[in-house]
Design a protein around this nucleic acid. Structure first.
Lengths: 334, 334
DNA sequence: GCGGATGTTTTTAACGTTCAAAACGTCCGT
DNA sequence: ACGGACGTTTTGAACGTTAAAAACATCCGC
């Protein structure tokens, strides 16, 4: 593979002139530029990323940690990863994947990747309540951007992009209202989850706005599983709450609800309208199809990369994006 | 961040001695080694990957293309990616993600990543019949290993690791047989798919071995979707084939079958036992739970990295691994 | 004709490692 | 005492870019 030196020899100019042809062509006389470009093309010259990075101290790689929470799959991760890679590539950068223990035990891994100049910065996701990564990276002065906020902190430790969960829940409530539902439940998570509280808040506010009852209609699941979705749905029905709509905090919980409705002989999606969140592959594969809130992955990824690679001006940047409701059979009019 | 030079000054030795302390400590006298290691620790020295890669021409990054086939999600990709990253990290390497157009249009992307020294080689997956990547990479002398074989080629163009689809189908047939089933269908893909033919062959051979009928019991779906799985199941049932077992080539097809059985009032997983392939998140979320063949991701990833980073000896390396049948409610005894 | 300004190209050094050769110190046999 | 072998450490160069300074060529006003 040709080097600048070889291209320079071929074009009968200095190495710097070839570098200028690539990076500052305005410096060169037109005929010199043409001759150099011909040599570059003829020798199929490709710049060596290592050499450049050594001199400039920028590796143009962005670190992303592959989540691996036990017993949980990330149903839309392939979409997110593809969008993230494409967005990074548009700026000449790439994504470096790595694994790390959760919580503070993972900090040495992040530290090492940055210190050894394997990455310039990080994109974080799967943010947890009191996630230590954000504060730690900010303290270390390591560039990062987060897909998702750190809940329970009044000031965010760094820039983030998120999807408006409250707005999403409100959208789902309104949709179910428009299909005729008037007693809409909310299947959420434990109170410790900021994301859940945010989405629950959206459900609550929209129900109030529409004059719908909310008392006794919001339940918290112990975990994000199908069984839990089924269990709390059973509990709601057994308690005599005559619900005709369910907004679930995730697709998995929504499917649990659908399963319980089916088990009780209720026509899934008809007597009770059900919606989920994430518009995961699950939403499509179940009959009659789950109405779900889709996150705008391309936009999310684009904003993440824009924030991470943008000129630093000291103030955190925040972007709250809107989900889109994908309507399927599970919320057909009753 | 400290450099070798700074550590050397601190320890009152040459740069080379510090490098030796890290890479060839046996060369150093014990007291010198101790003094240098103290300086390394005190100054929190971390080697600069760019500098090392420039000198050695090895970047220790492995390229992996994020699949993005339209209307298809890769339900076990997060598991695969995590296993791949962990395996690469165990050898001091990392995974660099990228996107590329499918087929020959993607070759320039692979070429560029290697020529610019962004990666040392590639792990390929989602291999298609007549996939051009393998032959092209071999021709270019670019290191790679494939998760999956290139079907329809008598000699593989490069090293691969794969899961034995035929053995998997045979395992599923045997399991259904042991639950009492005697008329077991196979839901496959079009004949053009080598993977499908392999899995169909396993179903066929095991049925023959067990003395079970096979005529008219193997169908090909036009695509890998739930609707197709439902459609061909309906066709089998409408044709009067009194099937009591279904081995589906994928979880999606299996779920389609389950849906159609449910629609016809057949108790899913009881009158007709159903199995799928991949043990994806779908297998767990449906009721009664789908029996499915799980691919050994950690072993696959470990073998891929071992082959890619092993000493090159000119002959392709091949490893065929065995899937594991995860038994759930969809194949309960009839 | 000369000096200053501008355009164009070259020269020099830097980035931070690793590789290979050279130098230095010690020991032992002659 | 000296030369050879071995152990230990240092020296010099290389990898291939980019950044900054220097050099060279040209033009124009005075």
């Amino acid at each position: 593979m040709a080097t600048l030196k070889q291209v320079a020899a071929h074009a009968e100019v200095s190495v710097q002139t070839v570098s200028n042809a690539l990076n500052a062509p305005h410096r060169l006389r037109a005929d010199t530029l043409e001759r150099v470009n011909k040599s570059i093309e003829l020798l199929n010259y490709r710049p060596n990323r290592n050499a450049r990075s050594l001199r400039t101290s920028a590796v143009e790689l962005i670190g992303y940690c592959v989540p691996n929470w036990p017993n949980q799959t990330h149903l839309v991760m392939d979409q997110f990863l593809h969008a993230l890679c494409a967005a990074a590539e548009r700026t000449g950068r790439h994504i470096l994947l790595f694994t790390a223990p959760p919580g503070v035990d993972g900090m040495p891994t992040y530290d090492d990747l940055h210190a050894r100049r394997l990455v310039d910065g990080f994109v974080l996701s799967q943010t947890e309540t009191h996630d230590p990564r954000h504060g730690w990276l900010k303290e270390q002065g390591i560039p990062f951007v987060s897909f998702g906020r750190v809940w329970k902190q009044t000031t965010q430790p760094g820039p983030w992009v998120d999807v408006d969960g409250a707005a999403g829940s409100a959208l789902a409530v309104r949709h179910l209202y428009e299909t005729g539902r008037r007693r809409i439940a909310f299947l959420g998570w434990p109170k410790a989850s900021g994301l859940a509280e945010d989405r629950a808040g959206g459900w609550r506010d929209e129900c109030k706005r529409l004059g719908l009852p909310i008392s006794g209609l919001s339940v918290r699941c112990r975990e994000d599983s199908l069984d839990e979705g089924a269990r709390v749905t059973a509990a709601l029905l057994d308690a005599g709450r005559e619900i005709d709509g369910i907004v679930a905090l995730s697709d998995v919980l929504a499917l649990g609800a659908l399963r319980e409705l089916t088990r009780r002989g209720l026509t899934a999606g008809h007597q009770v309208g059900v919606t989920g969140f994430d518009d995961s592959p699950l939403a499509d594969v179940v009959s009659p199809g789950l109405t779900s809130l889709r996150q705008p992955m391309d936009e999310i990824a684009g904003e993440l990369i824009k924030i991470l690679t943008g000129a630093p001006d000291g103030t955190p940047t925040e972007r709250l994006l809107q989900p889109e409701l994908v309507i399927r059979g599970s919320s057909a009019p009753g």
